[in-house]
């Protein structure tokens, strides 16, 4: 599924180094690449590259102050991203569990129809 690899957020958080960088940035509130490089096992150049990816994905804001650029996490974006991922993932977990029950009963030769009792369909939707 190569098209999935293009997703910016996926790319932004898939890299473990960037997740560590986000953790450190959240702890600081605001930081410069120099500050981040001191706390992470990356060069300042690597930190800057990671930050550029996070800015592009909308997860981090950059603000120039004098000769330095200061970075902050965008809590609204991070929060919305995490919450939406959670909700969408939970919906699919419920559906997959129902597919499993259906297929396993079919495979066992059961002729009993499986109802949807307990599946909260009202929460479903794209």
């Amino acid at each position: 599924m190569p098209d999935l690899q293009d997703d910016q957020l996926w790319a932004a958080v898939a890299e473990p180094g960037r997740r560590r960088l986000l953790d450190v940035l959240v702890a600081h509130g605001e930081a410069t690449p120099t500050m981040l490089a001191k706390e992470l096992p990356f060069t300042r150049q690597a930190v800057s590259k990671h930050l550029a990816v996070l800015v592009e994905a909308g997860l981090v804001d950059a603000r120039r102050e004098g000769r330095e650029v200061r970075y902050t996490v965008r809590p609204d974006r991070l929060d919305a991203a995490a919450q939406a991922l959670n909700a969408a993932a939970s919906r699919w977990d419920r559906r997959l569990a129902a597919i499993k029950r259906l297929a396993e009963q079919t495979a066992q030769g059961s002729t009993t129809a499986i109802g949807t009792t307990g599946l909260p369909q009202s929460a479903d939707g794209p």
Partner: peptide
């Protein structure tokens, strides 16, 4: 964004295939 999930099902692929593609089975999940 993308979400990806997976599950292991103790049934052959053709049974799972029908569960996800046939209307009378889709309405069951």
């Amino acid at each position: 964004m993308i979400i990806g999930r997976e599950i292991f099902i103790e049934a052959p692929v053709d049974v799972v295939w029908r569960a996800i593609t046939e209307p009378d089975q889709i309405v069951q999940w």
